[in-house]
């Protein structure tokens, strides 16, 4: 261990009602790294995200982020530490406008009393302008988020993630339901984001993973089956077996 790890998940196991969702899984991520996680349904991809973000407590094993023990913290505390999570289904606040959504996401004020008396600062105004242009949502800035298209909601949510200024982004199936053009634009966006932050992407879409061009971790039955470049793991007979076999 020569370099400090940003995220270090070690030998983590979780059992739900006797079903072992995660089995002695380990995952390490260096600062600035981007990793794609692939695996068939039920491989434990989402559960792994749940453990990292504090939604699920592991039965055994450790998970640390920047030296903090994630298994002792709840979701808001972990979010404040700098882990942002994007869900598979876009979850934006539909009754609020795009700008209001982004404003709530901005790193900073979190205690209810402070939020009550918060006035928009010039720095926040600048950040909003940046995020609106990054996500190409300037023209709909004051429209209700609920009226957006599916793709726009995905981008709004990515914008909200950026607003949190996390050190690590967890992105769950970002291109599900997107057109090919949107998929490629999203790959570009994630690569752009990766210039300043670490990213973990869970995705089924292999074209998308190839477009990202990052190391791939293959999960199967709750543990790591293979790790390496997409070409290496695609050639791995065990991976082929899991994806195509039986």
């Amino acid at each position: 261990m020569t370099e400090a790890l940003l995220l270090d998940v070690r030998n983590v196991s979780v059992t739900f009602d006797g079903f072992r969702a995660i089995n002695s899984l380990s995952l390490a991520l260096k600062p600035g790294e981007m990793r794609a996680i692939v695996g068939p349904n039920g491989a434990g991809k989402t559960t792994m995200m749940d453990i990292i973000t504090g939604k699920t407590r592991p039965d055994s094993g450790t998970a640390t982020f920047k030296g903090h023990d994630l298994t002792r913290l709840d979701e808001p505390a972990i979010a404040r530490l700098g882990i942002g999570r994007k869900f598979q289904k876009p979850t934006v606040f539909e009754a609020l406008t795009v700008t209001e959504n982004l404003l709530l996401s901005l790193k900073g004020i979190r205690s209810p009393f402070a939020v009550l008396f918060a006035r928009q600062s010039s720095r926040e105004r600048e950040r909003l302008a940046e995020l609106l242009s990054l996500t190409r949502l300037e023209s709909v800035a004051n429209s209700t988020a609920g009226d957006m298209s599916h793709g726009q909601k995905q981008w709004l949510e990515i914008g909200m993630l950026m607003g949190q200024e996390p050190d690590l982004l967890l992105v769950d199936e970002p291109v599900a339901g997107m057109t090919d053009a949107e998929t490629m634009a999203t790959a570009d966006l994630l690569r752009e984001i990766n210039k300043t932050r670490s990213v973990v992407v869970v995705e089924h879409d292999m074209d998308f993973v190839r477009a990202l061009g990052v190391p791939v971790t293959v999960l199967h039955e709750g543990s790591v089956l293979a790790e390496g470049t997409l070409d290496d793991v695609s050639a791995d007979p065990r991976v082929i077996e899991v994806y195509l076999g039986r």
Partner: peptide, 9 residues
């Protein structure tokens, strides 16, 4: 739930 992952309680 979404607000939790933004760091709000």
């Amino acid at each position: 739930n979404r607000t939790r992952f933004l760091g709000y309680r």
